[in-house]
Design a protein around this nucleic acid. Structure first.
Length: 272
DNA sequence: TCTTTATGGTGAG
DNA sequence: TCACCCTAAAGAT
């Protein structure tokens, strides 16, 4: 369940649990990483960075663990060596005396030197991180020559455009901005692009603060109490095919764009 | 038990 | 744009 905000939340937990104490043991499930277990044992974690959906756990000997959760990876922070009863595959564990940070199911795990971090093919291609950018950074991207003729539906899944936005944030950001997924930056007024840039930043920060909920948290709690499925309460439009728009009541439309489902309200996000 | 889907990403054409 | 890879859970049978 990882888009930028969720990854940053996991990084926060990791920092809190692992950074204060010496790392007593690191476990890698993949054979080619086993040699690094000895190199990281007894070291300290100095920072847990996120770059879009990727995480860099930096150690005090200049090595970093790169991890990307893709669709399946999941971090769990537990008391030391308190493994959950789960059929998931443990791929990485960082232990200290008090806590264990456990990464399950992820397949993209590497150990990098500083040079390898700089030259990393995924990291070096990322656009501005949505959680550490302001609206002007996003506006710059929207105005840039290489992006302004591409559809929003394609742009907002492209990590070179903005890092950290994924499939649910794409739908949610466009809804909050009131713009149709098929539009392109060149189709929009300056005011509309500003609205979009602001929405990209504010919806992402809201998702971070509300742990993945992109609509009103109180309303979400009320709907959840009624036993509705998570998609029916977490978001304005994402996953809510044929459900009424929370603003105007019209039915939410589901479509496919850039090989993934996109959701929008035809009335609130009408084409001009 | 089988099939499909998923908040991701890559590489070929 | 499509096929495919990764893995887990939900949905269909």
């Amino acid at each position: 369940m990882p888009e930028g905000p969720e990854i940053r939340l996991a990084a926060d937990q990791l920092e809190q649990a692992i950074k204060p104490l010496v790392v007593s043991e690191v476990f890698f499930a993949f054979d080619h990483l086993k040699p690094y277990q000895a190199a990281l044992k007894g070291r300290c974690v100095v920072a847990v960075e996120t770059h879009g959906k990727a995480m860099l756990t930096r150690f005090d000997n200049d090595l970093s663990i790169y991890s990307h959760n893709q669709l399946y990876g999941r971090w769990m922070i537990r008391k030391a060596y308190d493994f959950p009863t789960s059929k998931r595959q443990l791929r990485l564990a960082i232990h200290n005396k008090v806590a264990s940070a456990l990464l399950y199911s992820a397949s993209e795990i590497e150990v990098l030197t500083p040079e390898q971090v700089i030259g990393h093919p995924y990291l070096s291609a990322l656009g501005p991180d949505v959680l550490s950018s302001d609206a002007d950074d996003i506006l710059g991207q929207l105005w840039s020559e290489k992006h302004r003729r591409r559809r929003f539906s394609s742009l907002f899944l492209d990590q070179r455009f903005i890092a950290g936005v994924g499939n649910y944030l794409r739908s949610e950001i466009l809804f909050v901005a009131g713009l149709h997924p098929d539009l392109r930056p060149i189709d929009c007024s300056d005011g509309e692009l500003e609205r979009l840039a602001n929405a990209a930043v504010s919806v992402s920060i809201q998702s971070y603060r509300q742990h993945g909920v992109t609509n009103d948290l109180g309303r979400a709690a009320a709907l959840k109490a009624k036993g509705q499925k998570y998609r029916q309460y977490r978001h304005w439009v994402f996953g809510r095919k044929d459900q009424p728009c929370r603003l105007c009541g019209a039915g939410i439309v589901e479509d496919t764009a850039a090989s993934r489902r996109v959701y929008f309200c035809l009335r609130c996000q009408a084409l001009p």
